[in-house]
């Protein structure tokens, strides 16, 4: 069991990090820590993808010295996916941070439970 985990150490670490980020995003009450959790979660996914695209002993798929053989290079698709994913998660983080600033200016706290309570009071 442990040898299997050790052989796939990147995937194991990625799943652990995903768990940490996911629980942080779900359970932490502080908005900033929630966003950090989200970023950890997404980075873990990219680690997972990048690790799956890498093949030991091969090079990045850039032809420099005329080698055209497929066997010489790693799989370039996951790298492309990671790039797309990073763009998505950066824009989502930016949006979340902007919303957090809005909430902080209005309620002067980062605690989401407190913010919910204050917004209910404001209504009445």
């Amino acid at each position: 069991m442990f040898t299997a985990l050790w052989n796939n150490v990147e995937a194991t670490v990625a799943i652990i990090l995903f768990g940490i980020g996911f629980t942080n995003l779900m359970l932490n009450r502080n908005m900033i820590k929630k966003i950090i959790g989200f970023d950890i979660m997404d980075s873990a996914i990219y680690l997972f993808l990048a690790a799956k695209g890498y093949i030991k002993g091969r090079q990045a798929p850039i032809v420099v010295n005329g080698i055209q053989d497929v066997e010489a290079y790693i799989n370039p698709v996951p790298a492309g996916l990671v790039l797309t994913g990073i763009v998505v998660s950066v824009s989502v983080s930016a949006l979340m941070l902007a919303l957090t600033i809005r909430l902080y200016r209005r309620y002067h706290t980062l605690d989401i439970d407190e913010i919910t309570m204050l917004s209910r009071k404001e209504e009445k």
Binding site: L25, M26, M31, K34, D42, I45, T116, L118, E123
Partner: peptide, 24 residues
């Protein structure tokens, strides 16, 4: 309004949890 801002943030948090699971 305050309520719709809070609603939007809550929606984002839940949605991000969902899309994280979907992506992995």
């Amino acid at each position: 309004t305050g309520r719709s801002l809070v609603g939007g943030v809550k929606y984002m948090i839940m949605s991000l949890l969902g899309s994280g699971l979907f992506l992995i």
